[in-house]
């Protein structure tokens, strides 16, 4: 455990909190991609299957991981519920049109060709890493199509991108401090792809933030 890992997890929690706050405060889900959130639900379901293998109290780290895994699963499913049921009449269906099967297919192919190991659990785990890397794409497309982005929505995406950026720093840290960690090439590949997808968004976010204006995507 290092400071980058903790900062990353904290940003991840904050991003989900901002998203829920935005939806509950405005009682709408405009500007939020249901497709991205459903992809995250699949990501957490396929990655956290080890919740069924026990060992929750083996160490402080196991306990910490278990609590956060449950939190991510519950909050993501709650968001999907808000989008599908409670605020469904405000959902931007006509703009949220990214072809998700394409992403699922690409992640599945990568997971079968380059899994961390050839076991069912490891293939699913690798699938979740590749899928998480691209899960933000429907959300970015939706924002581009609607033009101006609400502040809270832009903060949400910024925190989500910063979370994975912190994880990359955490991996660099672990590369030098933990020799057993160096073979995690799935994590490296997926993490770098994911962080780079945010680069464009970060650029516009910081630019408009500096000018004190609402974010507009070209």
């Amino acid at each position: 455990m290092n400071v980058f890992r903790i900062a990353g997890d904290l940003l991840h929690c904050i991003s989900i909190f901002i998203l829920l706050h935005k939806m509950r405060k405005t009682r709408t889900c405009t500007g939020i991609s249901r497709k991205t959130l459903e992809l995250y639900a699949i990501v957490f379901l396929t990655r956290y299957l080890d919740l069924f293998t026990g060992g929750y109290f083996d160490s402080a780290l196991s306990l910490y991981n278990t609590v956060l895994k449950l939190l991510f699963l519950a909050s993501t499913f709650y968001c999907v519920y808000l989008l599908r049921v409670k605020y469904r009449h405000t959902y931007d269906r006509s703009h949220d049109t990214f072809r998700v099967p394409f992403l699922l297919g690409a992640a599945a192919v990568l997971a079968f060709i380059f899994p961390q190991r050839y076991t069912i659990l490891e293939i699913l785990w690798s699938f979740s890493q590749y899928l998480e890397a691209v899960a933000i794409l429907p959300q970015l497309l939706l924002l581009q199509r609607t033009g101006e982005v609400e502040n809270l929505t832009s903060h949400y995406i910024f925190c989500l991108g910063a979370y994975r950026g912190c994880y990359v720093l955490n991996w660099i840290w672990r590369f030098f401090t933990d020799s057993t960690y160096r073979g995690q090439y799935v994590t490296w590949t997926a993490g770098l792809i994911q962080t780079s997808l945010y680069a464009d968004f970060f650029y516009y976010y910081l630019k408009y933030k500096k000018q004190g204006r609402a974010l507009k995507l070209p």
Partner: peptide, 10 residues
């Protein structure tokens, strides 16, 4: 090398 594949992150 078993350790290398122990997933201890989120």
């Amino acid at each position: 090398s078993n350790m290398a594949h122990k997933h201890d992150e989120l």
